[in-house]
Computed example of a mutant assay.
Amino acid sequence: MIWEVFRQEKEGEYHTHCGNVHAPDREMAKQFAAIQHGRRKPTNNMWVVPKEEVGEVDGEKYSFGGTTDKSYRWATGYNVTADDASEVVESSDEQEDAERRRSEVV
């Protein structure tokens, strides 16, 4: 029987799918999951689920959100010319100069 394994790295984070294990029963699946998927990375918690019990929500049958344009969240969503960015470049240069002077004093 195939069991799907979901791993939580830190408390409060989401569980993410990390693979599967082949085992005859739930207890063996938990042990195999801990050995194969729990020891490689920091792990707080694991879910071990029979593959047959994992359900799918088909995107063609149901409409999901996420159709709103949120390109404003990414720098690539803006048309910026070199003139518009001159203040940013100047500020960056000033910060580098200040850092250089601080390291010379020490």
Results as ranks from 00 to 15, higher is better:
13 E>A: 10
16 T>E: 13
16 T>Q: 13
17 H>N: 10
17 H>P: 00
18 C>H: 13
19 G>T: 05
20 N>G: 03
21 V>L: 09
22 H>A: 00
22 H>S: 12
22 H>R: 10
22 H>I: 06
23 A>K: 04
23 A>L: 12
24 P>D: 12
24 P>Y: 11
24 P>T: 10
28 M>P: 00
28 M>A: 05
28 M>G: 01
30 K>E: 15
30 K>G: 11
31 Q>P: 00
31 Q>Y: 11
32 F>L: 08
34 A>M: 15
35 I>S: 05
35 I>E: 13
35 I>D: 14
36 Q>D: 07
36 Q>V: 00
36 Q>F: 01
37 H>T: 09
38 G>S: 14
38 G>P: 08
38 G>L: 15
39 R>C: 11
39 R>M: 13
39 R>Y: 11
40 R>M: 07
41 K>P: 00
42 P>T: 10
42 P>A: 10
45 N>D: 15
46 M>W: 06
46 M>V: 03
47 W>K: 09
47 W>E: 07
48 V>D: 02
49 V>A: 01
49 V>D: 01
51 K>L: 09
51 K>W: 11
52 E>S: 06
53 E>C: 08
54 V>I: 12
55 G>K: 11
55 G>R: 01
56 E>R: 02
56 E>H: 04
57 V>F: 06
58 D>N: 13
59 G>Q: 01
60 E>R: 02
60 E>Y: 03
60 E>H: 00
61 K>H: 01
63 S>N: 15
63 S>C: 09
64 F>N: 02
66 G>L: 07
